[in-house]
């Protein structure tokens, strides 16, 4: 489904991702954890090429995203091709990034309508279905500013789903939320996971990782230091750094 090979990423001279290799299967839920600054967000953002990469390759459903080989040369793919690839990859951000000038319904229908994926009627029906799914049927005509953080994030999930993505990426979807609102967003994500959506989730919610992850990826200093099933990672990790990190997180929350 997603295949990352020998990925390197620099910000200027700062080497933030070092030789990342990771394969994510269809329907798999992968949770990425690791200390702040370890490169979790950057890795996630490379998966839909919001961040350009310097070497290596990322492909989604066997098609490269971002960089392509042409005449033996590595180069950036044309914008329209990149946009097509991104339609397959939904993304949910830490601070929601809803469009504040559009109503909830319009937030959801903007992309399908603009890209001619649906006519107005189907788009509105899709929006209603998705809003019902995230428990916000009554807020279709509200504007983002009128919603709580948890509601905003659920709208953001619905907005991403409207493009019928094959993969969903979540970058700390609950980190900006008040504690009592975290549950409603996690529930929406669990629902999605149960339906078989392929998901890559960066989170500090270890409960979610334990319950929902098929595999947990541990990152430190730009590297993947360990990948395993959640019970192995949480009970018997092979890396000392994983233990240290988990000890810190679990005793602080």
């Amino acid at each position: 489904m997603i295949e990352i090979t020998n990925l390197d990423k620099y910000y200027g001279s700062h080497h933030v991702l070092k030789d990342i290799n990771l394969t994510i299967g269809q329907g798999e839920v992968v949770v990425i954890i690791g200390p702040s600054g370890s490169g979790k967000s950057t890795l996630l953002r490379c998966m839909n090429y919001l961040e350009p990469i310097q070497s290596g390759q990322i492909s989604i459903e066997n098609q490269p995203i971002g960089m392509i080989e042409q005449n033996g040369k590595h180069k950036e793919m044309p914008e329209n091709q990149l946009n097509k690839m991104r339609e397959k990859v939904g993304m949910v951000f830490q601070n929601f990034n809803l469009f504040p000038h559009l109503s909830v319904r319009e937030n959801i229908t903007l992309s399908p309508l603009t890209l001619g994926k649906m006519n107005k009627k189907t788009a509105n029906e899709t929006a209603s279905t998705l809003l019902a799914k995230v428990g916000l049927s009554d807020r279709a005509d509200a504007y983002p500013d009128q919603l709580s953080g948890g509601q905003k994030q659920r709208v953001a999930i619905a907005r991403a789903l409207a493009m019928k993505p094959h993969v969903m990426l979540f970058d700390e979807p609950t980190s900006a939320l008040d504690p009592e609102l975290i549950g409603e967003v996690l529930d929406a994500m669990k629902e999605l996971a149960r339906e078989g959506m392929t998901m890559v989730v960066v989170t500090h919610e270890m409960g979610f990782a334990k319950d929902m992850a098929d595999r947990v990826v541990v990152m430190d200093q730009g590297q993947i230091i360990e990948v395993d099933k959640p019970d192995v990672i949480f009970q018997n990790p092979s890396q000392e750094r994983t233990k240290t990190f988990l000890h810190k997180v679990l005793t602080h929350t």
Binding site: L110, L115, M163
Partner: peptide, 20 residues
């Protein structure tokens, strides 16, 4: 983040510019 949200939904740079 507004541009990133638009681009992640598959909109082009200019579509995001004009609509968002």
């Amino acid at each position: 983040g507004q541009m990133e949200a638009g681009r992640s939904l598959g909109l082009s740079h200019w579509q995001t510019m004009f609509k968002v």
